[in-house]
Amino acid sequence: MRTIKAQHRAVSAPIADLTTYRALPTPAVAHLDPFLFLNHHGPQVYRLGNRGLPFGPHPHRGFETVTFILAGDIMHQDSSGHQSVIEAGGVQWMTAGSGLIHSEISSDHFKQTGGDLEILQLWVNLPARLKMTPPHYQGLQKADIPEVALADGRARLQAVSGTWAGQAGAVQSLADVQLATIDLEAGAVLNFSIPAERTIFFYTIRGKLRVNDQETEARTLTEFHHDGDNLHIEALTDAVLLLGHALPFGEPIVAQGPFVMNTEQEIQQAYQDYRAGRFGTW
């Protein structure tokens, strides 16, 4: 089995009135190549007549955002002309690539009625050869994401990208990033074989799990060594897990604000291009 290098508790990082825990980066871990960033928003309950999510128009270049809507909704709009409202159980996969402007706010309906909200946003790096790929967006509702029953029906895996238990995911990523969310009932046992050279992304969203003989709990990121292929998971309570894996790029990472590139010069060029209107118009 893979050995565990460390476990990292997400740190409180509220944004306006939005409850937020940052799992990556933290003072203990900068990134897990190619996984760059994870914010866990909520869970919280919004009142009637609320202002919704605070993420108005802002630019990105050089990576992909994958947003998991666990409760509530997100209304996406971007400078490439895409617009959608994704509801609970859905996923947004946005390839920022060469650059675009987007916003992520709550729908008018959610702002009027309020309710439960819980959202994860993961940033996944792009290799140097794909940093300037054209922007692309996919909005997936819950019904668009294949589900696989595991552990005699005691676990349900949502195959977001890559291939899981023989099931192709809803997205085939540019850089072979495999991602899934898994709902586990207490007592469920799962085994996965993931080649040792691939980075595992293992974030416990809810509940308590035992992974490769170590316990982990909600809002905890488990970091693994690259020394084995096997992952053994036991659900100690009902739990929800974000699981992924990808080959590390082993390239320089220079991140500044909303841009992630390989050199400082490329970061400065991103700012120049944004100011010159090359990310499209809002």
Score class of each variant (00 low, 15 high):
residue 100 L to F: 14
residue 223 E to C: 10
residue 108 D to F: 03
residue 214 Q to L: 08
residue 75 M to V: 06
residue 259 F to K: 11
residue 46 Y to K: 07
residue 230 N to V: 04
residue 193 S to P: 00
residue 202 F to E: 05
residue 91 V to E: 01
residue 170 A to N: 11
residue 152 D to P: 00
residue 100 L to M: 15
residue 62 G to I: 09
residue 35 F to R: 05
residue 186 A to G: 15
residue 142 K to S: 12
residue 247 L to E: 12
residue 234 E to I: 13
residue 40 H to K: 04
residue 154 R to M: 14
residue 42 G to V: 05
residue 240 V to F: 00
residue 192 F to R: 11
residue 33 D to G: 06
residue 274 Y to L: 15
residue 148 V to E: 11
residue 177 V to G: 06
residue 235 A to F: 00
residue 59 P to A: 13
residue 190 L to M: 07
residue 60 H to V: 06
residue 172 Q to F: 00
residue 202 F to W: 06
residue 271 Y to A: 12
residue 28 A to V: 08
residue 95 T to R: 11
residue 278 R to N: 15
residue 275 R to A: 14
residue 36 L to I: 14
residue 47 R to M: 04
residue 2 R to D: 02
residue 265 Q to W: 00
residue 58 H to T: 11
residue 169 G to P: 02
residue 183 D to W: 04
residue 169 G to M: 10
residue 196 A to G: 01
residue 135 P to F: 05
residue 19 T to R: 12
residue 281 T to G: 01
residue 130 L to F: 05
residue 209 L to A: 06
residue 207 G to Q: 09
residue 255 A to Q: 10
residue 9 R to S: 13
residue 132 M to W: 03
residue 191 N to W: 00
residue 199 T to P: 01
residue 91 V to S: 03
residue 214 Q to M: 10
residue 40 H to G: 03
residue 140 L to K: 03
residue 179 L to T: 02
residue 235 A to R: 03
residue 194 I to W: 00
residue 95 T to P: 01
residue 177 V to T: 12
residue 217 E to F: 04
residue 264 E to Q: 15
residue 53 L to Y: 05
residue 220 T to H: 05
residue 2 R to K: 13
residue 46 Y to Q: 02
residue 278 R to Y: 07
residue 213 D to P: 00
residue 65 T to Y: 02
residue 85 V to P: 00
residue 57 P to K: 14
residue 236 L to W: 04
residue 222 T to I: 10
residue 280 G to A: 14
residue 58 H to N: 11
residue 259 F to G: 11
residue 126 L to R: 03
residue 195 P to M: 14
residue 72 G to H: 01
residue 202 F to Y: 15
residue 234 E to F: 05
residue 268 Q to Y: 07
residue 277 G to Y: 14
residue 114 G to L: 07
residue 257 G to C: 09
residue 168 A to N: 09
residue 228 G to F: 08
residue 41 H to Y: 10
residue 265 Q to M: 08
residue 278 R to H: 12
residue 42 G to I: 04
residue 45 V to L: 10
residue 241 L to H: 02
residue 210 R to D: 04
residue 104 E to F: 07
residue 8 H to L: 05
residue 48 L to F: 09
residue 113 T to D: 05
residue 171 V to Y: 01
residue 245 H to T: 09
residue 147 E to C: 09
residue 89 G to V: 03
residue 39 N to Q: 11
residue 221 L to Q: 07
residue 128 A to M: 05
residue 106 S to F: 04
residue 29 V to E: 10
residue 201 F to K: 00
residue 64 E to K: 06
residue 124 V to M: 11
residue 268 Q to L: 13
residue 159 A to K: 03
residue 35 F to P: 02
residue 44 Q to V: 06
residue 165 A to H: 13
residue 226 H to D: 03
residue 147 E to P: 00
residue 243 L to C: 04
residue 44 Q to N: 03
residue 268 Q to P: 01
residue 3 T to P: 03
residue 77 Q to K: 15
residue 174 L to W: 07
residue 81 G to V: 06
residue 249 F to N: 09
residue 99 G to E: 08
residue 80 S to H: 02
residue 232 H to W: 07
residue 187 G to M: 13
residue 160 V to Y: 01
residue 184 L to C: 09
residue 261 M to V: 11
